[in-house]
Simulated scan of single mutants.
Amino acid sequence: MKMDKLNKLSNDELKQVAGGCDYETSNDSKFLNVLLRGTDYHRCDRYGKFKIFWGSSKRYGPCEDIENSWRVLGIEMVPYAVDHNEYWLNGKLLTRDEAWDYAEKLVGKHLERKDWDW
């Protein structure tokens, strides 16, 4: 099969590509761990993708901690919903970026990737 032209994806299309599963949830835990540290909100531990994968049960393991951290921020996170996590705020489905932006504004911190991904 030969590609005649290079197809480029828009940013919105890229957000839909192979969501994230344990990678996405692992990064959520790292982000929330740093974002919520020193606040009155629940502090999420830092879970790597390996631990997320082996403890992926919604009611037992890291996902519950991450879900609770999102919940205290008013966001309902559904892990592994059809290949990627879903983020809901007041019945509206958010992109992951929108959920992170909302969390940063609520807590009053802005994080760069280097701040949480270590």
Rank of each mutant, 00 (worst) to 15 (best):
K49F: 07
F50N: 10
G61A: 12
K109N: 04
L32N: 00
K58R: 05
D4H: 14
I75Y: 02
R71C: 04
G74Y: 11
R43T: 13
W118I: 13
K8F: 00
D40W: 07
E98N: 10
D22L: 06
K114N: 10
L111F: 07
C21K: 15
Y60H: 14
V82Q: 09
D83W: 08
L93M: 14
L9T: 01
S26T: 05
V78A: 09
G108D: 10
D83S: 12
F53T: 10
K109H: 02
T39I: 14
S29A: 05
E24P: 02
K114E: 15
G61F: 05
W54Y: 15
W88L: 03
S56H: 12
E13I: 00
Y23M: 07
K2D: 12
K15D: 03
V72S: 07
E104V: 04
G38S: 11
N90W: 04
Y80A: 10
K30R: 12
R96Y: 13
Y41H: 15
W70M: 04
R96E: 12
N11C: 00
K49S: 12
C63T: 07
N27S: 05
E24I: 05
G74A: 03
R37T: 08
W54K: 10
R46A: 03
D97F: 11
N11V: 03
D22H: 15
Y102I: 04
D117S: 09
Y41S: 04
D97T: 12
N11W: 00
N33R: 03
K92P: 06
N90V: 09
N11D: 08
F53I: 08
S56K: 10
K58D: 11
W54V: 13
D117T: 03
H42F: 14
R59Q: 13
G38Y: 12
G48E: 11
E13R: 00
D4F: 15
S69C: 15
H110T: 12
G74I: 03
W88T: 01
G38F: 03
K105M: 07
G108V: 03
K15V: 09
H42Q: 08
G74R: 09
V72G: 00
D115M: 07
G91Q: 13
Y60E: 14
N33C: 10
G91M: 13
K49G: 04
E104T: 02
D45R: 10
G55F: 06
Y47M: 04
A18G: 07
G48C: 08
C63R: 13
H42S: 04
E112Y: 08
E64M: 13
D28M: 14
I66L: 04
K114W: 14
R59E: 15
T95K: 05
E13S: 01
E112T: 08
R71D: 11
W70E: 01
V34W: 02
Y47H: 12
D83P: 01
G108W: 09
C21D: 09
L6H: 06
N33P: 03
A99Q: 01
E13W: 00
L94W: 03
